[in-house]
């Protein structure tokens, strides 16, 4: 990435000979189509979530641009019932999981950031080996069952509290911090906890942000573990609700929502509103993640 930054200064990205006009047009078309294929579905989904019954009927099912946008689908969903509860569950899992995950991961990364320390190599091997294999869904399920974690939200948090990838990325970031600061802190009599909390963590903010976002996105998206481990319908996270009512098209009526027998917005709008609610956190997080990638936190780690 450094090379990109250098070549950027003379106004050109690293490129071959200047392309001819037809090639330029071809490139523009390829990129336009690619972006269109990604953006169009979102526009359609958001529009449908904002449309009312009349518009959907008029358009014959789907709306591309609603002329009378209404938020009624969102208000009926968030008023209470299945979706509102699942939303709370998902937010709770993402927050608790991300905070705990960051604590455990950064502590472990710090512990591994001094290559000359005691038992450094065996611990590093324990971490690296987990990236080569996974135990498989059946053994995982049997373990969760043995631990009595079935139907508990901890079954969705504890197994993914730390991953080999996040430890290694944070570790290489911490190893890149200037050693002089740590040395002088140690001479001043600071113990490991003080060094970790007062020096390492504040200096690692950028890397922690990226890893934290990865955790948050992972927890927000995770549904398969919930499918295996959670049977209690009142404990399901948002992605499973999305699967039940949108992918599998289960009936979404008054009894699943706030319980009022009033007039509900059209099913399609409700479904699309659930989809949009699941999407929005990701859409918000993405530009941030990308900025940090180009800053080289991860690419730098990849290069070793």
């Amino acid at each position: 990435m450094n090379t990109t930054a250098r070549t950027r200064t003379n106004g050109r990205s690293p490129a071959m000979a200047p392309a001819s006009v037809p090639i330029k047009i071809l490139k523009a078309i390829v990129l336009l189509i690619a972006c269109g294929l990604v953006v169009m579905p979102f526009v359609s989904v958001i529009s449908t979530s904002l449309a009312d019954q009349q518009q959907i009927t008029d358009a014959g099912g789907y709306v591309l641009l609603p002329d009378r946008p209404s938020l009624s689908a969102y208000s009926s969903i968030l008023a209470g019932g299945v979706v509102a509860r699942a939303l709370l569950v998902s937010v709770g899992i993402a927050v608790v999981g991300t905070v705990l995950g960051l604590i455990v991961t950064s502590a472990m990364a710090y512990s591994l950031s001094r290559p000359t320390s005691f038992a450094h190599k065996p611990i590093l091997m324990v971490v690296l080996l987990t990236m080569l294999f996974s135990p498989g869904i059946i053994p995982n399920y049997l373990l969760i069952k043995q631990l009595g974690l079935l139907n508990s939200w901890w079954s969705l948090i504890l197994p993914v509290l730390v991953t080999g990838f996040s430890v290694i990325v944070l570790r290489s970031f911490m190893m890149g911090l200037p050693p002089d600061i740590l040395e002088s802190a140690r001479i001043d009599g600071a113990n490991d906890l003080q060094i970790f909390v007062r020096i390492i963590l504040p200096l690692s903010k950028a890397a922690l942000a990226v890893i934290g976002l990865f955790f948050a996105v992972g927890f927000w998206n995770s549904w398969f573990n919930a499918l295996l481990y959670i049977n209690d319908p009142s404990k399901l996270p948002l992605p499973l609700v999305l699967r039940t009512y949108v992918v599998d098209n289960a009936r979404l009526g008054a009894e699943q929502l706030s319980g009022e027998a009033g007039v509900l917005p059209p099913t399609q709008s409700l479904q699309m509103a659930i989809l949009v609610i699941s999407l929005i956190p990701i859409l918000l997080v993405c530009p941030f993640l990308q900025r940090h990638f180009t800053k080289g936190v991860l690419v730098g780690a990849v290069k070793g």
Binding site: I103, Y110, T130
Partner: peptide, 23 residues
């Protein structure tokens, strides 16, 4: 003092990555 920091992570790896292999 440094090793203590690795304990929680090692526990998670042990319980949720290595023990299930026995399953």
């Amino acid at each position: 003092g440094l090793l203590v920091f690795a304990v929680p992570g090692l526990l998670v790896f042990l319980v949720f990555h290595y023990v299930p292999l026995l399953g």
